[in-house]
Design a binder for these strands. Structure first.
Lengths: 141, 141
DNA sequence: TATAAACCTGACTGATATAGTCAAGTATCT
DNA sequence: AGATACTTGACTATATCAGTCAGGTTTATA
């Protein structure tokens, strides 16, 4: 059970962005340098974030990205959702009438994984970008 | 973020085992048939479970596997641990003095992932095999 | 004591997804 | 005009998973 870099980077970059957002658009180049994430990869990630209206882009010199909502309103769920970081505990199709493992019944552990998924998703939907910014408010860099 | 089949199968098989354990050792062949899991794969998984003393093997005809502890005492943590299903949210080394991403400081989201890991591990360490057996006590198969 | 059931082990493989890189753009501020 | 920065899509190396396969060893029982 592993979180992918894409999801981690997305959150990391957005926290970075949120911390500087007050003044000017933040360029991906800066984020790349500060966070040690490949610029090309960041571009892929931000393309997704923009499509899901989590950030807005500002083109041209001195351009960059700006949050599209208040940090408080951006939950981790939204971010993960945007970059296709999914919590997948079960292979069985959730709403289908079919069971798991090709059998016509639910497997012995089906409810368990559902429960786990909810458990994790709750965590994600409670945490906002603002929370994370606050967590780091005492840092200089 | 995905749970692997290995972890899922391990739990599934152990629940199956726990339900029949009362009388005789349960053969992997039976579990394979009932749960639709490849026998060869099950053998790999049970080899690990045995090494971690979660099950005991009984060789020879009419042999099979038996739980090595009470179902109540076997937590999901133990099972996942045995089959190397790890919860890995961070790449940064946990106890090292080094930070993340090759930088000398913790990344902006380090605490978050730690928190998430704990959140998930709590879930796993609370659930026991017995709980899962009870969840399925109304089933015939 | 032979034999078959069942455990045991290790090597191998196809498929898939991730984590990037690379290249060739387009838009826009100064 | 030109630099800066976004935008897009194709490409690729690597790793891991999920599972197969082959060749064992052990032991209960007939």
């Amino acid at each position: 059970m592993k979180l992918t870099s894409r999801g981690r980077y997305a959150v990391m970059a957005l926290v970075d962005l949120a911390r500087f957002d007050n003044i000017n658009p933040v360029s991906l180049r800066d984020i790349s340098l500060r966070q040690g994430i490949s610029l090309d990869y960041l571009e892929q990630i931000f393309s997704k974030l923009r499509k899901k209206e989590i950030v807005q882009s500002v083109r041209g010199t001195q351009g960059g990205y700006v949050l599209n909502k208040k940090a408080k309103e951006i939950k981790l769920t939204n971010i993960f959702d945007a970059v296709d970081e999914k919590v997948k505990t079960v292979q069985c199709k959730k709403d289908s009438k079919k069971g798991c493992n090709g059998k016509p019944v639910k497997c012995l552990t089906h409810n368990l994984w559902d429960e786990l998924e909810n458990h994790i998703n709750n965590f994600f939907s409670e945490k906002s970008l603002e929370d994370l910014v606050k967590d780091n408010s005492d840092r200089r860099v």
